[in-house]
């Protein structure tokens, strides 16, 4: 029973990591840039969810929508405020990266100033109710998280492979100059990538929020694992990110259950180092030119 329960726990947690990591993957896949402020998008989206419930008495479902929209809005802001101006100046690759680190620190401290250091509770009516499947159990909240996460991942796959904007996104990912010559508006596709990637961070904040307490550093802890997932999966590879995210969730759960909770990070980063040593391009290596 314990093994199955631990695997179930890991799958649910892994699906959440996938949601957050996919946002990073999408942006990297299209721009070959890393957004270090992604963690703070998740944090601010979660705070937006808390405020929408505590201040405006909205339902949990609506608060998740608000969190997703806040995430998307922050993506638009960072594209227009940081990435696009630097692209126009044709700066080196490090400047946008350093700029997003600055944005990350700024947002974290603004949240500390505005919301204060005391952890806030993201209320959800589904936290206390539990589904029992034989000897297995799953809280309603975690069941919802799993279902929504799987639906979001499927929707993203359909979008990327079956719609014109999704195909355009993949084309830009493969070669933005060629895509531009083929009539694709690259700037619009980049903006769309930021909106979708950051909306996923916002969705992660809304889904994860009730399972945590919300404080200014809440995103930082999750994003470290998300970066590990992105590297293990193959930088910018959507399929690899999904597999790696679920793998990391299960490893974390099994190590916690059978060994020592304090060793889970060691195990995950051990896998990361092993991946870099054995398959430097990540789990899905053969699709490196067609990541997104």
């Amino acid at each position: 029973m314990t093994l199955l329960q631990l695997v179930l726990n890991g799958l649910v947690q892994g699906s959440l990591y996938v949601i957050v990591a996919l946002g990073l993957t999408l942006i990297f896949g299209v721009l070959v840039k890393i957004n270090f402020a992604h963690a703070e998008f998740l944090m601010l989206a979660a705070f937006a969810g808390v405020v929408s419930i505590d201040t405006f008495n909205l339902s949990y479902g609506v608060s998740v929508l608000v969190a997703t929209l806040v995430g998307a809005s922050l993506g638009v802001a960072i594209e227009f405020g940081i990435f696009r101006p630097l692209r126009k100046r044709r700066t080196d690759e490090l400047r946008p990266l350093v700029a997003t680190v600055g944005v990350s620190i700024l947002l974290q401290n603004l949240a500390l100033l505005y919301f204060g250091p005391n952890p806030r509770q993201y209320q959800s009516p589904y936290m206390q109710k539990t589904i029992e499947l034989g000897e297995l159990y799953l809280s309603y909240q975690r069941a919802i998280v799993f279902v929504v996460a799987v639906a979001a991942i499927c929707a993203l796959f359909v979008f990327l492979r079956r719609t014109a904007p999704g195909r355009a996104m993949r084309a830009v990912s493969q070669d933005s100059d060629a895509a531009s010559l083929m009539g694709i508006n690259v700037s619009r596709i980049v903006l769309m990538t930021f909106v979708i990637g950051s909306a996923l961070a916002g969705l992660g904040g809304g889904l994860l929020g009730p399972m945590l307490v919300i404080e200014p550093t809440v995103g930082a802890n999750i994003i470290v694992l998300s970066f590990a997932i992105v590297v293990i999966g193959g930088f910018g590879n959507v399929n690899g990110t999904v597999i790696a995210g679920l793998l990391v969730g299960i490893i974390e759960s099994l190590v916690t259950g059978y060994l020592e909770a304090g060793l889970s990070s060691l195990a995950i980063f051990g896998v990361l180092l092993l991946t870099l040593a054995v398959r430097p391009t990540g789990l899905i290596a053969e699709r490196v030119e067609q990541n997104v």
């Binding site: 974290q108 830009v172 470290v224």
Partner: peptide, 27 residues
């Protein structure tokens, strides 16, 4: 668009992880 090599990616991520860990430091 060419992708950076794995060594570059590893360095970027390692740096990023360290920077993310330092993000809470204010005075």
């Amino acid at each position: 668009m060419r992708k950076p090599r794995s060594k570059t990616l590893a360095a970027v991520v390692a740096g990023g992880l360290m920077l993310t860990g330092c993000a809470g430091t204010t005075s």
